[in-house]
């Protein structure tokens, strides 16, 4: 403990103040790319889970292969493939393009699985009773099946959001000045390891804690207030 206190005293606050704006910029970038990726992940997740739910031929098989491919390869490898591999066959993507595509490719499968479990948890009779009052298939999904599936899927979906934002820490490999990149850069340049890492941890916490708290609130609302429990 003594050592720890000693080091805190020796923290170079001047250095931290000076490079604070870099972290703010990086956090903004991380947040922006993270959120964009998450949005696309949700879209991919909805499409894949519905393809499975409705047994859509071809699309369903594609979804299965995609989910396995995406969940069983690390984001780092996916990014390498996009950034260094694709140019070899003539496809050039910007760093941000790679980051968003990579994150969406990874997140889509996680979102799909979270939604699939929710959809499967909805009683089969719900579909029939909704059809029986004359709703068309789209309305059945929109008003009856999906809201129930979503309620079940909220905890895993929220966990995925947090997971995906954390995964953005590998974006630096495609030359993006995200939080991780800034910290590594500062360490490399000035050897101020403690300060750089401390600010990195704080930055992620500042980004993720509010999301985590919000997710907890949504879950509690769904669990306790929803459906008359």
């Amino acid at each position: 403990m003594g050592v720890f206190y000693g080091r805190i005293e020796k923290l170079d606050t001047g250095f931290m103040a000076e490079y604070f704006p870099l972290y703010v910029e990086a956090a903004k970038l991380t947040f922006r790319l993270g959120m964009t990726g998450i949005l696309f992940s949700l879209v991919i997740g909805v499409v894949c889970s519905l393809a499975g739910y409705y047994h859509v031929p071809v699309l369903r098989q594609i979804a299965v292969v995609y989910v396995e491919l995406s969940r069983n390869t690390p984001l780092l490898v996916q990014l390498f493939f996009l950034y260094f591999g694709l140019p070899k066959i003539g496809v050039m993507l910007s760093s941000e393009g790679c980051a968003v595509i990579g994150l969406s490719f990874l997140g889509g499968s996680y979102m799909a699985e979270a939604l699939r479990s929710g959809l499967e948890a909805v009683e089969k009779g719900q579909m029939e009773s909704a059809l029986a009052i004359g709703l068309n298939r789209f309305q059945v999904m929109r008003y009856v099946i999906f809201p129930q599936a979503l309620a079940t899927s909220v905890p895993p979906l929220c966990a995925n959001v947090i997971f995906l934002i954390k995964e953005t820490s590998v974006f630096s490999v495609v030359a993006l000045a995200d939080l991780m990149y800034v910290a590594k850069d500062l360490i490399g340049l000035y050897y101020q390891t403690d300060e750089a890492l401390l600010m990195l941890v704080i930055s992620y916490l500042v980004l993720l804690l509010p999301i985590s708290v919000a997710a907890g609130l949504i879950e509690r609302r769904l669990r306790y207030a929803g459906f008359g429990d």
């Binding site: 029939e128 009773s129 029986a132 009052i133 309620a151 459906f227």
Partner: peptide, 16 residues
């Protein structure tokens, strides 16, 4: 189906 109503054994009310 608007002209043919149906009631099920397990009610199937929409729980949400």
């Amino acid at each position: 189906r608007q002209k043919i109503g149906m009631v099920f054994q397990s009610y199937e009310l929409f729980p949400h």
